[in-house]
């Protein structure tokens, strides 16, 4: 008995000491370090490399003077490049459109599934929602080439049924951008719907019932009872999708390659072209660093909204 009490005491003392004088648990360190080192090497080191490249002259095709320090010359080149600003503007325009459509449609779809009584159909739709999200974006782009084909594409055929004349989707600068936006909406609205569905699942049933006593208007119930529960999901979706649209490369690459001309060249496509078609890694890196700053701001915002207390259980 005495022994056990002593053991407990020692244990408690040990814990107290550990708290006051945190010593290093080497085994724990050994378990966490491999992943930290891996991310430092493949995640952080390339970023720092990109920053240093952005201050150098670095041409892949004429490597004579590579590595020469050029100060902010590359940044000046980027900021004075109308193509950079137009690709960024294009990306932002697309972002605003897809965010609005996807959030509104996502909420609509979630409310529809949530309130419908057709169990089997609900389940089928929920499973089907996963398909566009999982589909390889490069393949989605290829599929877009087929569907938006002017002469035998499905899109023009369906529009023809309602009397709209054939549209030269991929040959017209504006319509090519519309095609990319439609494709993105098809692929990512289901993601919004899935988020909204899981948010709706936590709306307390009693609150909806209580609200029904006060008002008959489904809009009022949605606005004042359900919407507050959806807000975190909407915020998460907005930040994640902003990052994803800034990243967007695969689908537009196979769908339009940025064309016709540069009319659908989104920011990621332009940086890639600058680095690997124009071969100017210095300027491309300066563009990438500016993009990186945007990414970091987004990440900070996301963390601020969603992980304020990561230890809380």
């Amino acid at each position: 008995m005495a022994n056990m009490a002593e053991a407990v005491n020692v244990e408690a003392l040990g814990a107290k000491q550990r708290r006051r004088f945190p010593h290093i648990n080497w085994l724990a360190l050994a378990m966490i370090m491999p992943s930290v080192i891996a991310l430092l090497l493949i995640g952080l080191y390339p970023l720092l490399f990109a920053v240093s490249l952005s201050f150098q002259r670095f041409l892949l095709n004429r490597p004579q003077n590579n590595g020469m320090f050029v100060g902010f010359e590359n940044y000046a080149a980027v900021l004075n490049d109308p193509l950079f600003w137009s690709s960024l503007g294009r990306t932002m325009t697309m972002l605003v459109i897809v965010l609005i459509v996807q959030i509104v449609a996502g909420i609509g779809i979630a409310l529809l599934i949530d309130s419908s009584r057709w169990r089997v159909l609900n389940w089928t739709v929920k499973t089907a929602l996963v398909i566009p999200i999982a589909m390889t974006p490069a393949v989605v782009g290829l599929l877009g080439v087929l569907i938006f084909n002017r002469d035998f594409g499905l899109m023009n055929y369906l529009l023809g049924l309602v009397g709209i004349e054939k549209i030269n989707w991929l040959g017209d600068p504006t319509m090519a951008m519309v095609a990319i936006i439609i494709t993105d909406i098809w692929q990512w609205t289901p993601f919004a719907a899935l988020i909204m569905l899981s948010s709706l699942a936590i709306v307390p049933h009693e609150m909806v019932e209580a609200a029904r006593l006060d008002t008959k208007s489904p809009w009022m119930i949605f606005r004042h009872v359900k919407l507050p529960y959806l807000m975190p999901g909407i915020t998460a979706f907005m930040i994640i999708r902003t990052a994803d649209v800034l990243k967007l490369f695969d689908m537009p690459f196979t769908l339009t390659r940025g064309g016709p001309g540069v009319s659908t060249e989104l920011i990621s496509l332009y940086v890639q072209r600058m680095g690997f078609r124009i071969f100017d890694m210095g300027v491309a890196s300066a563009q990438a660093v500016l993009l990186l700053i945007l990414c970091i701001v987004l990440a900070r915002a996301y963390i601020h909204f969603f992980y304020r207390t990561p230890e809380a259980e």
Binding site: G43, A50, K247, G275, A288, L291, I296
Partner: peptide, 15 residues
């Protein structure tokens, strides 16, 4: 978590 937000093109150049 931040790594989720980094655009791949940023690391693709140095990589």
């Amino acid at each position: 978590i931040s790594n989720r937000f980094i655009s791949p093109i940023v690391v693709a150049l140095p990589f």
